[in-house]
Design a protein around this nucleic acid. Structure first.
Lengths: 188, 188
DNA sequence: TATGCCATGTAACAGGTTACATGATTTT
DNA sequence: AAAATCATGTAACCTGTTACATGGCATA
């Protein structure tokens, strides 16, 4: 159950509402951990019950009220204790890769279409990460030092996306080549 | 629910027992999809109930009997139908990255130790993948052609591992540097 | 007028993990 | 003597997803 720890790490960076957290999970940190708003609201409730976070209502003009959460001392103790325990290895479940592995059974045009859709998504993610990296690079050396670990996690996302795109371009080229060859045979 | 489709893709490659599948999920294909034996045995039961796979008992000498499963025509139809539907995007949940992102709260030596353990694991995985790639390279052009898609999925695993190691070495260097600096300050 | 953003939640269900259970053979 | 490999399963529990629910304000 690391969702709570992911939330605590985010709350350590800055106070946030459930909505804020959901946004961050959908963007930056979402690359290494993700969660839907439903999960987040539930977990914030539990964290609050356990005294690891606290919140206050914040009224806003033109927008609905929100609950602003922050991490408590008990929350920090919990986080630090968790840091000393070995992290479970991530378990990957990528359905597209299953399709690729069994690609000889698939409609190649369909597969190419889907690959390209995912490539577009990954391009967007990379663009976001690059913007985040640029923002980091513009910080003062002192601030860079403070956010060094956040940056290292971001860096992981970037390298991961780059490696994915490298792979995808290889696959794209092969699929296109396969389709071209078939067309030539048909017209011959 | 793509576990069943992952199993079907594996059974398309060759007939297998639940145990065989569990081994493959733990090694090769495990990089893109993984499952425990408990999940696999349950799902094989359901696949069998749904007529997508069949099996026969195989007696073995010196080893327990096993159930050898294969994919049926209905199984192939199911797989092909599934291939045409968009695959859900993978959701990453990597606890180590949360630790890294909140690394300023962690004991750096502990973090370095854990990073190095995971690096060793990844080295092993890479070695396995490289052996698999070498085996593929030794196949006849015709066989390479047949297993092209399997190889593309393997290739993804390799690139992913390489990218992970690149990142990990960067982080390792930073952590080591940080610890050295602290030691110098202590002894000064 | 419709879509998107802000903001928080509940409930039912599906999927996945951990613990428990057994037992022979082979390797260290 | 202990650990690993082969081989299959059940049950309880925890986690995560999808569907449902509401509603104002701002932008296209």
């Amino acid at each position: 159950m690391s969702l709570r720890h992911a939330i605590l790490v985010l709350l350590d960076e800055h106070d946030a509402s459930g909505y804020d957290l959901a946004r961050e999970f959908a963007r930056g940190i979402g690359h290494v951990w993700n969660a839907t708003h439903q999960q987040i609201y539930l977990e914030l409730g539990r964290l609050s019950d356990d005294g690891l976070v606290e919140y206050r209502h914040v009224a806003q003009n033109g927008r609905p009220d929100k609950k602003l959460y922050w991490i408590t001392d008990a929350g920090y103790r919990e986080l630090e204790a968790w840091m000393d325990e070995p992290a479970p290895k991530p378990r990957l479940r990528d359905a597209l890769m299953i399709k690729i592995a069994g690609g000889h059974l698939a409609d190649k045009e369909q597969l190419l279409r889907e690959l390209r859709e995912q490539m577009a998504d990954h391009e967007e993610t990379m663009a976001t990460f690059r913007r985040m990296e640029e923002a980091y690079n513009k910080l003062s050396p002192r601030e860079q030092e403070n956010k060094r670990f956040e940056w290292l996690a971001l860096r992981r996302g970037l390298l991961d996306e780059e490696s994915w795109m490298t792979w995808a371009r290889e696959v794209e080229a092969e699929l296109v080549e396969g389709l071209d060859t078939r067309e030539q045979n048909q017209s011959a």
